[in-house]
């Protein structure tokens, strides 16, 4: 058996390195630091069709990620898709912001892109974005292209 002091030191070192590894996973591998629940607020947007949008899909302005989708549900009356998203609270959005669903690349994941307008008023927490543009469904576009009325051309 080794000297007890060396053993103590090695065990202490082992535990410290283990905990450091967990912290490394938390902050370097995942994104614990960037979106904690405290400094976000929720806004809602209604889309005719939210396409392949998923929970945790990115929400971005000018290509910069400022939040993520938190909940997607269907309106019982109008059958619209209701998309709730968390926005980092350091970003204030004007109330005439438009929301559109785009696809990153041809086959990439879908994301919500916000286009701020020129209004002075900002959207409050739990506010609603009124102007939206639905996801582009590739099959529909191909269908339109293929079966377009030849007389139009």
């Amino acid at each position: 058996m080794q000297n007890t002091k060396t053993q103590d030191t090695l065990v202490g070192l082992f535990v410290v390195i283990g905990i450091a590894a967990i912290c490394f996973m938390a902050f370097k591998i995942s994104n614990l630091s960037s979106f904690s629940k405290q400094n976000v607020y929720t806004i809602t947007a209604r889309f005719e069709n939210s396409g392949g949008l998923k929970i945790k899909s990115p929400v971005s302005i000018a290509g910069v990620r400022i939040g993520r989708v938190s909940k997607i549900s269907v309106d019982k009356d109008s059958y619209e898709s209701i998309v709730e998203m968390y926005i980092n609270s350091q970003y204030k959005l004007p109330d005439d912001t438009t929301a559109s669903i785009f696809t990153a690349g041809l086959l990439g994941e879908q994301y919500v892109s916000l286009e701020p307008g020129g209004s002075e008023e900002v959207i409050n927490p739990n506010g609603v974005i009124d102007i939206t543009q639905s996801a582009i469904v590739l099959e529909e576009m191909i269908g339109q292209f293929l079966f377009k009325d030849p007389v139009d051309n």
């Binding site: 283990g18 590894a21 967990i22 490394f24 996973m25 370097k28 591998i29």
Partner: peptide, 15 residues
């Protein structure tokens, strides 16, 4: 106690 620490170490070193 050791198992989660070792697994965390394994993943971190692997990355």
């Amino acid at each position: 106690i050791s198992m989660p620490l070792l697994a965390a170490l394994f993943s971190s070193i692997g990355v």
